[in-house]
Amino acid sequence: MSEVMLSKAKTLEPRNPNKSTGLFGGKSSGILNWNDIAYPHWYKIYKRLIGNYWQADEVNMAGDVKQFSTLSEAEKEAYLKIIGLLSTLDGPQTRTALLISLYATDPSVQSIMAVIAQQEAVHNESYSYVLASVVSLDEQNESFQLGRKDPVLLKRNENLVNQYNSFVEKPTMDNILKTLAYTALLEGMFFYSGFAFFYNLARHNKMVGTSTMISYINRDELEHGRFIAELFRATLAENPEHNTEEFVEWVYDHFKQSVELETEWSNYVLGNVEGIDLEEMEGYIKYRANKMLRMMGLEELYPEHVENPMKWIRAYVDNFDGTKTDFFEQKSRQYTKTSDLNGFDDL
């Protein structure tokens, strides 16, 4: 198949219809009427995203400041390395979300990706905020250098880096679809062993401020993952010539590689942390991969991991389809275990 380079969407083209004729490579005036968009239910996703507004410095870190020095050496090391990991993912994700929006010819996608980009910027700010609360500037800088220097982390991120940069250098439909697949992995699986570490601390009444911050980030990422999976499916449906056995095998192959690399990373960073079962963590990573594949319209790779093996995690993230506590009205959180019936299924 010949590779056609896509052009960036024009800002305004009044001769084109308001409702886009295609998500990428289509025609649109650039005028957004939420009551007349190609995928009407995406307005609800937009509303949920903007409803998740929060700011990093509104989270009280006073308890964490006192507690950090009491953590075990393994917990301190994992804390700093995982913050380093998260920063290497969320920082570039701000730019990737904006880049996707530049090539999107559907104005509703542009608006949703703009919100996602802004939230990723807040996430990255939050990692600077939590580190500034508990360690010196030198230690903060060292943590943020991990994405450039740590060999295990570099290996873990290599495929993601290559695909994101390929999209920058060659903006084809194939690279947009592959970048969406990796974005789904990032939003729906790559973060989660790191999130689990902070929730494990919180269930032992450690670093609850950091865990609260992570829960807000987690809630955002769940929405991002949901939208990216839908955007992937819709883009593939609009471009059926790309829905080939070869492309689907590419997706499965990169999901498998990502699961292996994420498992290797979690063993490396969590191996000595009390309360973390590495076999259970591997099952959780595979469960998350299955979850994202289903959301993307594909079959599961790990049929033995269709249930969440770490159900206790559900207690630490708001169910964003339910009632949301006003962030500025009530900042404290109660960490109580949920039942299988009322737990949040997407974790």
Rank of each mutant, 00 (worst) to 15 (best):
K155V: 10
N272W: 12
S215Q: 02
G297Y: 04
A117I: 01
E329A: 15
R156W: 13
E282L: 09
P14I: 00
A289Y: 02
S108T: 12
A237V: 08
L12E: 05
P303T: 02
G91Q: 02
P240M: 03
T88F: 14
M296Q: 01
T235V: 00
S108V: 03
V65F: 08
A181Q: 03
E274A: 12
K206S: 01
P151I: 03
L278R: 07
D64C: 04
D345L: 05
G91W: 00
A104I: 06
S133I: 00
S128L: 13
R203A: 10
D57H: 11
W54I: 08
E246Q: 13
L89V: 10
L185D: 09
I276D: 01
N175Q: 07
S136H: 09
G343L: 01
V208P: 09
F255V: 15
S72E: 00
N200V: 06
E307N: 05
G51S: 13
D36E: 15
N16K: 13
A237C: 04
S108G: 06
Q55F: 12
F68R: 03
N218G: 11
S339N: 12
Q257D: 14
P309M: 14
V317K: 02
N175F: 05
H224C: 07
N205I: 01
N162A: 15
L298Y: 00
Y43H: 12
Q334T: 15
Y216I: 01
D57Q: 04
M207W: 11
E241I: 02
F255E: 03
I285A: 01
E249P: 07
F232G: 08
H41F: 05
D318V: 09
F255S: 12
I313V: 14
D253C: 00
Q118C: 02
E329I: 14
P240C: 02
G194R: 03
Y316V: 06
N218S: 13
I37H: 01
V251Y: 01
A62S: 11
D340C: 02
R226Y: 12
N175G: 00
T210S: 06
F227H: 00
F167W: 02
T212R: 14
Q145N: 07
L177R: 08
S29F: 14
T105M: 00
L32N: 03
G25S: 07
L293H: 08
E230N: 07
G283V: 10
N60D: 15
L201E: 09
F247Y: 12
S20I: 00
L160Y: 15
P240D: 05
Y252W: 09
R333I: 09
Y287M: 05
N290G: 04
I82V: 02
A121N: 07
G275V: 07
E73Y: 05
E73M: 10
I82W: 07
L12K: 06
K44T: 09
T336A: 13
I313N: 14
P171W: 08
M5T: 02
I214L: 10
I276V: 13
V4T: 13
E262S: 11
A289E: 04
D138W: 05
M5P: 02
L80R: 13
L98C: 14
A237Q: 14
H254T: 15
F167C: 05
N18M: 12
E282T: 12
Q163W: 08
W54D: 10
L180W: 06
Y192F: 15
S72A: 04
T21Q: 11
L293A: 11
V65T: 06
M296K: 00
V248K: 13
P303A: 02
G271F: 00
K206E: 00
K256T: 04
